[in-house]
């Protein structure tokens, strides 16, 4: 996850149990962290609105797909106009399968079509929609990598100043 060029803005480790105790944690953490990440950006409220939307989506995905125990680690880092959200999620087999499928779909390069289909599909929400939306609407570059010890690393690079203007 380390990349010398990127500078840490905020780092948080949380037991899964604590994070997953309440759905509204996604919104709370997203709002709080977005406020910090928007310091020094051109139009902080505008930036923070975008950033919190993105982060909330990622946190909601993790909320749904993760192992019952372990710790979620997450960091926001900055390099110039790029902000990076780096997440590490403990996974059980079903979560692993979900992230693998998400990675494959992102590789297919047609997130826009997948997204439109998922929006109109009946039945259960396909949570991969969150990733597709970040890729399409926010120009996010998303890397999903399995790591030892049954965890998944998600690295999401964002150039939100460009989206904001």
């Amino acid at each position: 996850m380390a990349d010398a060029q990127f500078e840490d803005i905020i780092r948080l480790d949380m037991p899964v149990g604590l994070f997953a105790a309440n759905w509204s944690n996604c919104d709370r953490i997203a709002t709080y962290v977005a406020r910090m990440a928007s310091i020094g950006r051109q139009d902080p409220p505008r930036y923070s609105n975008l950033f919190s939307s993105v982060l909330n989506e990622l946190l909601e995905i993790i909320f749904c797909y993760r192992a019952p125990d372990g710790a979620v680690a997450f960091a926001v880092q900055r390099h110039g106009t790029t902000d990076r959200i780096a997440l590490s999620v403990p996974c059980d087999p079903s979560a692993e399968a979900f992230y693998a499928a998400a990675r494959d779909s992102l590789k297919s390069g047609d997130s826009a079509t997948l997204m439109d289909k998922a929006l109109l599909a009946e039945g259960e929400l396909d949570r991969r929609l969150g990733f597709w939306e970040l890729a399409v609407e926010y120009g996010a570059e998303i890397a999903i990598t399995p790591v030892d010890g049954n965890a998944m690393h998600l690295i999401v690079d964002l150039k939100l100043e460009a989206v904001a203007s």
Binding site: D27, N49, N56, E60, A118, L119, L120, G130, E133
Partner: peptide
Amino acid sequence: LRVNVCGFRELSR
């Protein structure tokens, strides 16, 4: 201010 994918899909429906 914000809509998650679940909310957005519901609006679209």
